[in-house]
């Protein structure tokens, strides 16, 4: 591990100042991902700014939603009665992720910003455009399984590993960001991540020193909420495919549909065309099949990932069936 400085400021101003002091500084929340990557030499920040004492560790009621503090632990979030009652898809997604020990430590903002588990990204002895821009992609032509089929480029096929963010994507979450000048803005999660293109090392639209202070959930627009995750073992495994559905039915028709996916995309994936197809339609097997076709219309099925297309199709159909029954 590279020697680094460590600060634990008590106010956001100081945190942003600390981050501005070095181009290689990093915020640290639970550290469940960053510390591992520092040990492996994948990340080497020279300064860690600890955000755990900034007072962002509560879930606040808004007019009709909630604002989840950036350092609320994943397990606390999953257990919160408000979340369990009104946004159950989020609780279920959180509990499908990682292990109990990791969830006790991991934070809301850290979960959004966790890095891919592509094994080539984690191996400093092979090229990776995400780790070392321009060095190439060892995963292409390598062993692919936990990789993406949507949003990929010839520079990167890494999947975003989060479960939590998939549910938040389906819940129209807004990321609350405090910038270096102390101004607060919000950014929809659908706009927060960037597809890799030829700059896979730039994963979000955050500016340097931007501090995530929380995530806002608006009132849920659907009371039918489902999260389903398919993985290689029963727990402590990343999604091969996961899907979060938030739906509302009225008079036999789908009044509202928001479907998001994990394990498929380079980011927590939501496709407006899928939602649009479903909205206003009557639930049927044919409709759900078509939703899968729309979702996967531009899927890139590289060798080793062919299974994801039929699997995603089946999972989507099952989730839609469950949510509309």
């Amino acid at each position: 591990m590279r020697p680094f400085d460590y600060q634990r400021p008590a106010a956001p101003e100081a945190a942003c100042q600390g981050m501005s002091a070095s181009p290689h500084a990093a915020y640290i929340g639970g550290g469940t991902n960053l510390i591992d990557l520092m040990k492996l030499g994948v990340m080497a920040p020279d300064l860690l700014v600890d955000v755990n004492r900034l007072g962002f560790d509560t879930i606040k009621d808004l007019d009709d939603g909630v604002e989840i503090g950036a350092t609320v632990r994943n397990s606390d979030l999953a257990d919160d009665p408000r979340i369990r009652v009104r946004w159950p898809v989020l609780s279920r997604a959180l509990l499908a992720g990682a292990s109990a020990q990791l969830r006790n430590k991991a934070t809301t903002a850290g979960n959004l910003l966790q890095r891919t588990r592509c094994p080539y990204f984690q191996d400093i002895d092979v090229p990776c455009n995400k780790r070392k821009p321009g060095s190439g992609c060892a995963a292409l032509g390598g062993e692919l399984r936990n990789h993406a089929i949507l949003g990929t480029s010839e520079h990167c096929v890494a999947a975003h590993p989060s479960d939590m963010a998939v549910a938040m994507q389906a819940l129209d979450a807004q990321v609350v960001i405090r910038d270096a000048d102390g101004q607060t803005r919000t950014m929809g999660l659908d706009h927060f991540y960037r597809t890799p293109g030829d700059t896979p090392h730039i994963e979000t639209r955050l500016n340097p020193a931007d501090l995530i202070t929380g995530v806002r959930l608006p009132a849920p627009l659907g009371d039918r909420q489902v999260y389903r995750k398919v993985r290689d073992r029963a727990s402590y495994a990343f999604a091969l495919v996961s899907a979060a559905a938030v739906m509302q039915l009225k008079e036999g028709r789908i009044e509202y549909a928001a479907i998001a996916f994990g394990g498929l995309g380079t980011q927590p994936w939501r496709d407006p065309k899928v939602d649009a197809l479903l909205t206003g339609a009557r639930p049927s097997e044919a409709l759900f099949e078509k939703a899968g076709d729309v979702l996967l219309r531009s899927a890139e099925l590289r060798e080793g990932l062919e299974f994801k297309k039929p699997l995603a199709h089946r999972v989507l159909k099952a989730v839609l069936t469950e949510a509309t029954q």
Binding site: R117, P119, Y120, G141, G142, R233, A234, S235, Y236, A237
Partner: peptide
Amino acid sequence: TEAMVHDARDGHVVNRDLAEYNVPVHAD
């Protein structure tokens, strides 16, 4: 659940940690 994955190009073990080499967990 278990399999060591060798990169077909150079034989190196790709999944060399306990997050990616899937030993059964309690839930299994």
